[in-house]
Amino acid sequence: MRAFVSMLSGILFGFGLALSGMMDPSRVRGFLDIFGDWDPTMAFVMGGAVIVMAIAWRMQKAMNKPVVCDQFSLPGTKLIDARLIGGAALFGIGWGLAGLCPGPAVASLANNLSGAAIFVAAMIAGMVIFRLTERPAQ
């Protein structure tokens, strides 16, 4: 049951990415180009996502446990530090240059293999480099 719900969630997420235009790098870059030919449509996508997450957080607080799991596995909160700011900046720069972020890039492998494959390969290389150079938390 858990695998089915995970697969259904992934399909729904991919469908949402395609429907919203988040898999189109030119639309994403148009949204990020606030001083040029700005395309505000992604603001509506993000606003919709915020509304859905606000509802999901309210529902989660009212539930004792998830529907298909024994317990919730929620991330803890952390202070904003240099590592978080650096990672966010690197993510933003990559998103602006490529017009893709991890979710849409993986979904784009189905319809834009050459462009998405380069991004996904670089993303995986970055993850490997991070794992190889990561220092233990102190």
Rank of each mutant, 00 (worst) to 15 (best):
R27H: 01
R27P: 00
R27C: 02
R27Q: 10
V28H: 09
R29V: 04
F31Q: 09
F31I: 11
F31W: 14
F31D: 01
F31P: 00
L32H: 04
D33F: 05
D33W: 09
D33H: 11
F35T: 14
F35G: 10
F35D: 12
F35V: 13
G36E: 02
D37M: 02
W38Y: 02
W38F: 13
D39A: 10
D39G: 02
P40Q: 10
P40K: 11
P40A: 04
P40I: 06
T41L: 03
M42I: 08
M42K: 02
M42F: 10
M42P: 00
A43L: 15
F44M: 09
F44K: 08
F44P: 00
V45K: 07
V45I: 07
G48F: 12
A49C: 14
V50R: 09
V50L: 15
V50W: 13
V52S: 12
M53H: 11
A54D: 07
I55T: 05
A56G: 04
W57Y: 03
R58L: 11
Q60D: 02
Q60E: 11
K61L: 10
K61T: 06
K61V: 03
N64R: 11
N64L: 11
K65P: 03
V67F: 12
V68M: 09
V68A: 12
D70A: 15
S73F: 05
S73Q: 14
L74C: 03
L74S: 12
P75Y: 08
G76C: 04
T77E: 13
K78D: 00
K78R: 13
L79F: 08
I80R: 07
D81T: 02
A82Q: 12
R83S: 15
L84F: 14
L84Q: 04
L84H: 06
L84E: 05
I85F: 12
I85Y: 06
I85G: 05
G86M: 07
G86Y: 09
G86A: 07
A88C: 09
A88V: 13
L90R: 10
L90S: 12
L90E: 01
F91N: 00
G92Y: 00
G92Q: 03
G94V: 02
G96H: 13
L97K: 09
G99N: 08
L100R: 13
C101F: 12
C101L: 08
P102A: 00
G103P: 13
G103N: 05
P104W: 07
P104C: 04
A105R: 01
V106F: 15
A107H: 01
A107F: 13
S108K: 09
S108Y: 10
S108T: 00
L109G: 03
A110V: 12
A110Q: 06
N111E: 07
N112Q: 15
G115I: 00
G115F: 05
G115W: 01
A117T: 11
A117E: 06
A117M: 11
F119L: 01
F119H: 12
A121F: 11
A121V: 15
A121K: 09
A122N: 03
M123H: 06
M123F: 14
M123L: 14
A125N: 01
A125W: 02
M127C: 13
M127L: 14
V128E: 00
V128F: 02
